[in-house]
Amino acid sequence: MKCEEVKINIPELIDGKLDAVTGAKMEQHIKGCASCREEYNDLSSFLKFTDSLPEIEPPSGMKEEFMMMLEEQTSSQNPRLIILPSWTKAAAVVVLALGTFAAGYFSGSGNGQNAQLTAEVQSLKQQVVLAGLKDYSGPQKIEAVYSAAEYSTQSADLVDALMYTLNSDKNINVRLAALNVLSGMVSDNQQVKSGLVQSLLVQDNPLVQISLIQVLTESGVNEAKDNIEFIKNQAGTDPNVKDFAQDMMKTII
C-alpha cells in the first residue's frame, strides 16, 4: 500500500468501517511508516473532537409549531382555537371577578337578560381557561386543564385546546391531566374520539401511551385498532407499552 492510499483510508480505519483485510494491511503500514503514523494520530484525536460536537438544541416550541401545522392540514374542517393575546392572562382575575359580581347582581331576577349575561360570562370564563391552556405551564396548567373540565360545555374550541395540550405539552403530568379530562368525553364526542386515536401516533412517553391505549380500549373505540398496532410495531416503543398494547388489542374487535 502506498502512503497516499493509506492516508485517504485513515478516517475509515478510525471509524472501523474497513474490511478486516484492508484494516490489517493499513495497520501494518502505519506501524512501519512514521509519516502515516503521525497522520493517523493527528486525525484520530481531531476526529474524536469533531465527533464530540454536541447536538444543537432546536429552539423550544419548534416541534409544537409543526404539530399544529400538521393538525391543521389533517382535519380540514377543524375549528380554530381562538388565539388570545397575552394580556388575557392578567385579565383573567378581572374577568373571574366580573363573573362573580354579575352572577351575584343578577341572581334571582330570572329574566332573559340574566340568562344571556350568564352565558356571556360563561363564555368569557371559557376564553380565559383556553388562554390558560395556551400560556401557562406546570402546576398552573394542570389547574387550567381541570378548570376546563369544570366549565366544559364540550365546545370544539375547548376540545381543540385540550387535544393540543395532550399532543404538545412538554410536561407529562399536564398531558396526563388533559387525557384524563378528555377521557370523560370520549364516549359521546366524535371529535374527542378521533383526536385520541390520532394522538396515539404522536405520543412518545410510555406512561401517556399506556394511558391512551387504556382509555381507548376500555371505551371500546374500535377505530383505534390500527394506531395501537402501529405503536406496538414501531421501533423504539417501550417493551412495556408493546406488551400492554398486545393485551389490550384482544379486548377490541
Binding site: K63, F66, L70, L201, V202, D204
Partner: peptide, 11 residues
Amino acid sequence: GKKMAAGILYD
C-alpha cells in the same frame, strides 16, 4: 394518506 405519520418522521 395517513398524515399523522409525518409527526413521527418529524420527531
